[in-house]
Design a protein around this nucleic acid. Structure first.
Lengths: 134, 134
DNA sequence: TCATCATGCAACTATCGCAGTTACAAAGAA
DNA sequence: TTCTTTGTAACTGCGATAGTTGCATGATGA
């Protein structure tokens, strides 16, 4: 696993859960299926739980399950829960030496903001229940 | 300097050049202004030269200058020249274990492709001659 | 011709983000 | 009380890339 792995892992897991919403899955099971580590799974899914997409329980028969109906969880929800910016933000130039620098940054930041809105809008059009394998 | 620095450096430098297109600038001058290193400048501007946006010359009175009129160089040109993906691409899952994984990847990749087109379109609406400080 | 000044480029170091891992505490169920 | 599972801190390893050093190459002008 390499890059954008958090989003991939989250979406992959949720898509599976959407197919069988009643089933509870442990971090170990999920990690094994995703080819990664239980701790990594808990780190990523923890964010989704904090965002109200998943619930987790400890102890015997504990694990992870959807906190909402699958059709009420969109790709945008997941994207926002992870605070993943697929649209990179150019950071503010801290040393405010040059006015051109500022004008430029504002211009680019405006464009990126618009583009991110477009991205989120597009992602919100698909729920995790709509992902189906071939 | 930290992240997205190539694009920042390139745009910043080109914007300055747009204000005085006749002037030739050395890597050292540019690096000093941008708070970085001449070699880094040459690395970044080299890509812009390869893309036909800049020209460079060695020797006395050598250095960098615009290869086109400033109003004919858009932010999109710079973005594309650097091959910077501000829209992160989710890489193809190499181990094709799971069909859901594929369906998911295709869906997300489609959205990202569209979004990147939007980004480039938006960037192409502004030329480097249109950036003005306060 | 030759010294000088610039780019071009290869190689190395430093740093940062992040996945992966280990270890253990906390909590819930049998 | 014991087993199972999450929660979390701390560390390691790796990849990307800015920064740096050193030197070759080419252009200019005295």
């Amino acid at each position: 696993m390499k890059r954008n792995s958090r989003l991939s892992l989250a979406l992959h897991t949720l898509s599976h859960m959407a197919g069988e919403p009643a089933q509870v899955r442990t971090s170990s099971d999920i990690a094994e299926h995703a080819g990664t580590n239980p701790v990594v799974v808990r780190r990523v899914l923890g964010r989704l739980r904090d965002a109200g997409l998943l619930s987790s329980e400890k102890g015997h028969a504990g694990g992870w399950r959807l906190a909402r109906a699958p059709q009420d969880i969109t790709l945008a929800d997941v994207y926002l829960a992870l605070n993943e910016s697929l649209v990179a933000s150019t950071e503010e130039p801290e040393t405010a030496e040059c006015s051109l620098e500022h004008a430029l940054h504002r211009r680019v930041a405006d464009v990126l903001e618009d583009v991110e809105k477009t991205l989120i809008h597009r992602l919100s059009e698909t729920s995790i229940s709509e992902i189906r394998g071939a």
